[in-house]
Design a protein around this nucleic acid. Sequence first.
RNA 1: GCGAGCGUAGCUCAGUGGUAGAGCGCCACCUUGCCAAGGUGGCUGUCGUGGGUUCAAAUCCCAUCGCUCGCUCCA
Length: 526
Amino acid sequence: MSKKLDMEILASLCKRRGFIFQSSELYGGINGFWDYGPLGCELKRNIKDAWWKAMVRTREDVVGLEASIIMHPAIWKASGHADGFADPMVDCKDCRKRFRADQLCEEQGLELIKNGSAFALPAGAVCPACGSKNLTEPRSFNLMFKTYVGPVEDDSNVAWLRPETAQAIFAQFNNVLATARQKVPFGVAQMGKSFRNEINPRNYTFRSREFEQMELEFFIRPDEAVELICGKITTLADNPDLDGEPQESWGWEVWHRYWVHQRLGWYRAIGLPAADLEQYWQTGDELAHYARACVDIEYAFPFGVQELEGIAARSDFDLSQHQKHSGKGMDVFDEALKQAADKLDAAAKEAFVQKVVADWTGRGKAAEDARAFATKLLEGKYVPHVIEPSAGTDRLALALLCNAYEEETLTDDKGKTDVRTVMRFHPAIAPIKLGVFPLVKNKPELYGKAREIFAKLQRRWNCFWDESGAIGRRYRRMDEAGTPWCVTVDFQTLEDGTVTLRDRDSMRQERLTIPALVEKMDAEIG
RNA sequence: GCGAGCGUAGCUCAGUGGUAGAGCGCCACCUUGCCAAGGUGGCUGUCGUGGGUUCAAAUCCCAUCGCUCGCUCCA
């Protein structure tokens, strides 16, 4: 691939061929929003189909959900996303650091001035870092898009466009559990639009204000439950087989690693080279307080190595937060756990509780919380923990576009050189699978036969009919669209039913019957 | 959000106060027996948008929107 691909060259091709347009271009555009054209929306659809197939359809332990974008505002209080709104921030114009206005004032023995919903700094407030008085007015820094439900705009009906799809999965956890006939460990997957009012959208579509996510929340037992059921916990030290069936004895760390492994495999399967994929393991300081581990899967974009997906082990934080805020229980009852606990005598149970308490207090948690958790476990109940692989669809589309782009210099028989622009998409995600052409269009019998073959192939795959211009030109047009194969119907087709199949990458041609072609397509597209 | 640069046809760009252009692409017809062939004809723009200066503005001024780069931010 072209590592030095200029994003403007790519953006130009994307516009010229109909992959990506700037939103609202007719009116001068709007920053941070993008539209997918005829080829782009096919590409994105193929990405989503591939993800859904890998994550939901071909698994017995994952089910889908499609939730509304606007949800009860309390969800964002529980998740922590709404906090910034209540906390106006000030920036220091000199050292460029940002502080919470209320904390800054309190530290300096001052009081933040409040005028209705606006805030102002009292005289004498200075930057805690550099001492400068050159501070901005306090401003709210919530990055969620705000709207009103119903016709009246007042504080009582404020709502937010979701900044992530994940929370709906937690909010609907009980309903899914009750209806899906699944038991922990299992997952809930969702794809859909999310919105973040980014301060500074950059790098073409990479950071957009409206974007699509593909998220899985995979719920697992707490390690302590696994230990009670299996007698031991499989850890990474046991060298578990991450390609095989998941095992009941896996602890959270193995589950987390399993999903990292699965997701990397998927990216490779849709054509991103392993060499351009990187893992970034967040370190202790970078992890959110509730997260036990978080890995970013990154791709080497022309503008830098950037995140495609984050895979976080989030403990029971999310469900617990919703349990706390909603007052509704998020416990699951685990029959296997109950049976395992029932086999223990009173002394063994107490020993188990003591062990959990010792373990938790060693990690700085309260003994009474540990005791309550352990006692519930012995009743077969717990709040599930979660592993969250969260991918950005648009970022992936951009990565695939960057990866596919190539300018190839060709030399013909006479030594004349020519540059061919070709989008080398994996067949599974290529917007158009087949171009279908009559060799010439002014021979009715040839033309009719080609239409007949096109109609047949079109029922299976997205095909593109092209009869205009010389055959070579038509091939090159398909190269820029990233179409992996072109079928040309010629005079020999009328005699023996074979067609010419031209391969995008090698530019080689072979003759095939239609059934042989269909078989080849099935094998290559997957 | 700050600083700098840039916005002219679908794309790449020329045009510095006097009736908007080129190449490529695209469309139609002809031609064409396999890699951007050739011929003929054709389409496309409130010169990003809105104001202002001027007899006259793509060109000068102001504002605004968008893009790029560097900081900043990034749940």
